[in-house]
Simulated scan of single mutants.
Amino acid sequence: MEERYIPKYLNAQIQLLWWELDEMIVLMAFVGLGIVADHTYIFAGLGIIAMNIYSKLNNQKQPGFFKHVMYRFGFWGKKHLPEYWVKELVR
């Protein structure tokens, strides 16, 4: 019988070195802005700071917290869903 790899957590995010994918996206966004602005090292440093702040906030909140924040400000979600502040639906 051949051995197979079984991950420790089935729903764990992809990791690059010791960072999770969403933290790395924050860093890469800042590096991308730095490339466009021709200040790569400055924006890479700001990206590391932003990544640390994001990871600390992400570890303190419930899973899916940032998706709710993005939905509230209109960056996430479907357009046919009601606004976040609607409590009752009336036909």
Rank of each mutant, 00 (worst) to 15 (best):
R91A: 13
G77H: 03
A50P: 01
Y54G: 01
Y9W: 09
V86A: 03
M24F: 10
D38F: 15
F66L: 01
W19I: 11
V31M: 05
L16M: 12
G32C: 14
E20A: 08
V90S: 00
L33S: 11
E88I: 10
P7A: 02
F66S: 06
L81V: 11
V86P: 02
W85P: 00
W85M: 02
F65R: 01
Y5V: 12
D38A: 14
K87M: 07
H68P: 00
K67L: 15
V90F: 00
P63W: 00
Q62D: 15
K61E: 07
M70Y: 08
H39T: 15
E2A: 08
R72P: 00
V90P: 07
E3C: 06
H80V: 09
V36L: 12
M28N: 07
V36N: 04
V86Y: 00
F66H: 04
F65P: 03
A12K: 05
E3A: 10
P82S: 08
V26S: 00
A50L: 04
Q13W: 04
F73C: 08
P63K: 06
G77S: 04
E20D: 13
M51N: 10
L17T: 13
N58T: 11
Y54M: 05
L21H: 04
I14P: 10
E20Q: 03
M1A: 13
R4F: 15
A12I: 02
G64Y: 07
